[in-house]
């Protein structure tokens, strides 16, 4: 049986009500992992030729259209309207989420250097998940192409970008060497940078921004009310695949006990907010 629910992403080209398959909503474990690691990856089941066609259009651009990239390449709306994308956004930003009018073509040219670690915007971090990014890669990314690199678990840190200048390699850093057609949803405050592009090709990524429009009054993903009731497993610890153990034990960077206690408390506040408890 296919469960259909109604979600209403508000796009800047007009409101569009979409019927989405409940199958595409995230599970409790996936939501807990997003809270903990700060990212969620989706590989879209669109034809390879579709992604390559977008990549070839990007290859041919002589200037950056900025926010108008979706007018230049209207096929990008099919990414935003894909049920797996709508399902992830609905799960994490609630019904009536907004596709922000800001979006950007990030083209990393051949022979361009790496980009240093940074958090976007100013340092005013929050436990709430009110906005995040969707990074779409139309071509398969290899390490020599200058992939986006993220540091899972850093999304709750109030760290001015200037203070990151003496970091280069950080334990747990994750290069997004992904397959063509991947969308990486990343927490807005996740530390990120890029590798250097030493290949002979342009590395394309389209960045989209999404916003919550209202606080949750109930979970908007495939939620089991008993999800948090599993007892802590002191043997499996971070290897246990359930919400309680993920929120409690996972330590992606291997930070100190003090920091880990703090981030565990923040995760639980975030989980409660998503469940509509506050």
């Amino acid at each position: 049986m296919v469960n259909i629910i109604t979600s209403t992403p508000i796009a800047d080209n007009g409101a569009a009500t979409q019927m989405i398959d409940k199958h595409y909503l995230l599970s409790d474990v996936e939501v807990a992992k997003f809270i903990t690691y700060g990212y969620h990856m989706v590989e879209l089941d669109l034809p390879a030729s579709f992604h390559e066609q977008i990549a070839q259009q990007l290859d041919g651009l002589q200037s950056n259209p900025g926010d108008a990239i979706t007018e230049t390449i209207p096929e990008l709306w099919q990414i935003l309207e894909h049920p797996a994308v709508v399902g992830a956004l609905t799960s994490l930003l609630g019904h009536n989420y907004r596709v922000n009018s800001h979006r950007h073509w990030h083209c990393k040219e051949p022979d361009s250097p790496y980009m240093h670690w940074h958090q976007d915007s100013t340092n005013n971090r929050s436990t709430q998940i009110d906005r995040f990014l969707g990074l779409y890669y139309p071509r398969t990314i290899t390490p020599d192409m200058g992939p986006t690199i993220i540091v899972p678990g850093t999304q709750f840190r109030n760290a001015p970008t200037d203070r990151m200048a003496t970091y280069t390699n950080i334990r747990g850093q994750l290069p997004l060497n992904v397959k063509a057609g991947t969308v990486a949803f990343t927490h807005y405050d996740l530390w990120h940078g890029t590798g250097a592009n030493r290949s002979s090709v342009r590395r394309h990524m389209i960045k989209f921004l999404f916003n919550r429009t209202q606080p949750n009054s109930a979970p908007t993903w495939n939620h089991d009310p008993d999800a948090l009731n599993k007892v802590r497993d002191w043997n499996l610890r971070d290897k246990a695949e359930d919400v309680n153990n993920i929120l409690t034990f996972v330590n992606p960077i291997g930070v100190s006990q003090s920091d880990h206690y703090k981030e565990t408390a923040i995760r639980r506040r975030c989980w409660a907010e998503l469940r509509g408890e506050s």
């Binding site: 020599d144 690199i149 390699n169 850093q173 290069p175 940078g193 890029t194 590798g195």
Partner: peptide
């Protein structure tokens, strides 16, 4: 000389 974030597995 320039530093660089490794896009592959970093050996500590």
């Amino acid at each position: 000389y320039q530093t660089e974030i490794s896009a592959s597995e970093f050996e500590w």
